[in-house]
Design a protein around this nucleic acid. Structure first.
Lengths: 207, 207
DNA sequence: GTCTATAAGGAGATAGAC
DNA sequence: GTCTATCTCCTTATAGAC
């Protein structure tokens, strides 16, 4: 519980903050050292390369996203529309707390094709991770079978919801800069978006 | 019509290609010179700084996007649902031809706050550009008034559609790398997404 | 206008003293 | 483990010859 952790974990923590703020190419190992309060050589001593350090941050973030994505859809004993409402609400809450995460992951995947393949392989090696889609597919197609919702491919279902939720947070810094809005106006905007999206999706996929 | 344009426009053209492929920070003036077939000093001779060259590319791209956004909604003499169908179709067509454009613009705006403010001022100085939203607002709220569609804020209407269309193209390189799909499978995927999104939006905003 | 050469600075990574 | 010093490479930008 002491503030002083070992240096290795302090470096990892500072690196995580900086990579999320400024991306891989926008963060130097000198920046990381400066935030930790040590010298640049130590960053390389513990992690050898900047890429190693980055991958530890990146992979843990992808894992968090995958867990968050499926969790609210798996709750039992709820009407599908309530599940959906809860899921979209949960995504909004998660993204409010981790607003730079989607852009970070997408950006780093797009900027480096080798990284994209590495991430894909890492993802596929783990059964529970790679079954995220299968799990959601199960839930959605059960509802289609019951006639609760119109026939829809699970990939469309997922992409519709992810697009509608994530995109707001990707462009949030632009919205903030353009509208010069306060934190509470921002929160109001996000909340209003959430309600509209819930309405759009529920009406958009009903039979 | 000859292939040989003047060097200045060749540099601009190559810079545009490279900035779109690899972003501002991923493109060096040496890369640009190499593609043109001249030396790096000439890039600076014509544009002085890399930033100047970038801004010419960037501003023209933002202009293209704004024009494309409003155009299909302004056609007269059409049922609103048909307008909507056409608009989403037109956005998909535009994005198919310019698939890296959304990520490029968002990325560069997010990576540089000064650039964001510059772009915003540039945007606001021009009346027709800054009235894009007003124009769309007019169209949408007229339909709300007539009861064709449910009460919806224009900002929600725009963001719903932009999110649903743009996001597919942002993540397309990831989809391609992960699914190892051919060009025709990719086209089929995009087309299937288009149809689903049209259905989702039309049902999602009807009264 | 076009070239070569180079200045000036920042990056990642390592060597070696303590 | 932690530090300073340094190597090597790459970047933007400019000086100056032709």
């Amino acid at each position: 519980m002491s503030k002083e952790q070992n240096l290795e974990s302090e470096i990892l923590k500072s690196a995580e903050e900086l990579f999320l703020e400024n991306g891989f190419s926008g963060t130097s190992t000198t920046d990381i050292a400066k935030r930790v309060g040590c010298n640049q050589a130590l960053v390389h001593y513990y992690f050898r390369t900047k890429e190693n350090l980055f991958l530890q941050v990146f992979n843990s973030k992808v894992e968090t996203i995958l867990t968050t994505l499926q969790k609210p859809l798996l709750q039992q004993n709820a009407e599908f529309n309530d599940k959906l409402r809860n899921a979209i609400g949960a995504y909004f809450d998660f993204l409010t707390e981790n607003s730079r995460l989607p852009f970070f992951v997408i950006n780093e995947l797009l900027c480096n094709r080798e990284r994209l393949k590495l991430a894909y392989n890492y993802f596929m090696q783990n059964t529970s991770r790679s079954k995220v889609f299968e799990t959601i597919d199960n839930v959605v197609q059960t509802e289609v079978g019951k006639g609760t919702i119109r026939p829809i491919k699970t990939v469309d279902f997922v992409l519709d919801i992810v697009s509608l939720t994530v995109f707001n947070f990707i462009i949030m810094p632009i919205y903030k800069a353009v509208s010069d809005s306060t934190e509470s106006e921002k929160a109001e905007f996000i909340n209003s978006r959430k309600e509209d999206i819930i309405t759009l999706v529920i009406n958009g996929i009903k039979c």
